[in-house]
Design a protein around this nucleic acid. Structure first.
Lengths: 217, 217
DNA sequence: CATTGGAAACTTGTATACAAGATGTCGTGA
DNA sequence: TCACGACATCTTGTATACAAGTTTCCAATG
């Protein structure tokens, strides 16, 4: 027996880390037996997953884990680029010592994470924290949550993209450069740096070739 | 008998135009009788309204139309400022004749709307179309929808703020200036113009003094 | 053998009875 | 008069039976 909140978080997590692959069927009856709960509260969970694009609901047919929508990925990258450029420039003048320490500690943890077990899982979480901290320090946690809310496609895209370890090192290095920019007030470098950091090599064909069956047609 | 979609749109509309005032109770049984539908599909509608912050659900107590959250208003204004500055600058170089015509036609309609019946209602709709068109022309309709999705508080705030007719004239004038900036490639003026256009005089006390009972504590 | 009909077994959608908590009322007692 | 407590009546939350559409599979028929 699980609560609705637990079920929601569990399913979200399993979809985001691709344990539940795009196209997987999420039947109400199967889920209600798995979680020992009736269909009514379960439908609440599925409704929420549907609104956040984790699943697609086909009436009288079934619920499928959504395929990765590259249009959504592109748009979220653009949104984050524009926002984080502005936020980082804004922070350059006003970053507190406490804020700097928080970011440095996070980058230290990222460095340690890269060469340990579950590197990808752990690193992605810390990367998330790094960027969220930027939003929070700038007083825009609200917008971070809004981005998170429509993040299913980007998050899964990103995970597939970062499968190679050398990518993690590059990303960590860019985090250091971003922090340096802020502490040294080098606002002129920010635009190009953030643009490249978020966009990565989105145009590479690696993902399309190896995970075509995860991608929305 | 109404469909879920109709009910959802109707309730959204009534909340946005303040026919349903903040704090109004939306009881499931009352609504199910009004729309001649059972509680189950109605709860689907309320769930969606809840996720989009149109209502607040207090378990076993009731559902209230949400109060206007000024923090959300501030954040949406910031988000739109940053995005529209970038979008407008980007369009300055690449606006098509068709795009220019579409925007001009819209502004013509805005001018006519100001002095007719239901000026506010009509003008707000056209204003919405103007800004949506900017997003669409720039290839970012996705982000317009994302903003719309978390727009309840901003939309109601705005309506209260624009109750005076002279405001409409000022806004229309600024729309013309924005269009001129784009056609004349005067990108240096964009930042200040957009900033002022979206922010308006949000700091005025008019709203707080006259509609305090609509505002979230 | 291929094709078509149709029933059976699925799917989600809806109505409804009941559970359980919150609230307000009214009466009793001090 | 005031305080308190039981109860009646609200509210939303949950379980479940049934409705209605979709798919699958198998057998009958050409």
């Amino acid at each position: 027996m699980s609560t609705k909140k637990e079920i929601l978080n569990l399913l979200k997590h399993e979809i985001l880390n691709l344990t539940l692959k795009p196209g997987t069927i999420l039947s109400e009856t199967v889920l209600s037996e798995r979680f020992q709960i009736s269909r009514t509260p379960l439908r609440d969970v599925l409704k929420q997953l549907s609104i956040e694009s984790y699943i697609d609901v086909y009436p009288k047919k079934g619920n499928l884990v959504s395929y990765i929508d590259l249009e959504s990925v592109e748009q979220i990258i653009y949104l984050r680029s524009v926002l984080e450029k502005d936020i980082i420039k804004g922070l350059s003048g006003s970053l507190t010592l406490k804020g700097i320490m928080e970011l440095k500690k996070n980058l230290e943890e990222q460095k340690n994470a890269i060469y340990q077990e579950h590197a990808l899982e752990h690193f992605l979480m810390l990367d998330d924290t790094f960027h969220r901290t930027l939003f929070t320090l700038a007083g825009h946690e609200f917008l971070w949550k809004l981005i998170k809310f429509s993040n299913v496609h980007y998050e899964r895209y990103r995970r597939l993209h970062m499968l190679k370890q050398e990518k993690l090192e590059k990303v960590l290095n860019e985090h250091h450069m971003i922090l340096d920019c802020m502490t040294n007030h080098e606002t002129d470098k920010v635009d190009e740096l953030v643009q490249h950091h978020l966009r990565e090599d989105i145009n590479s064909l690696y993902l399309l070739e190896n995970f075509a069956d995860y991608i929305k047609a």
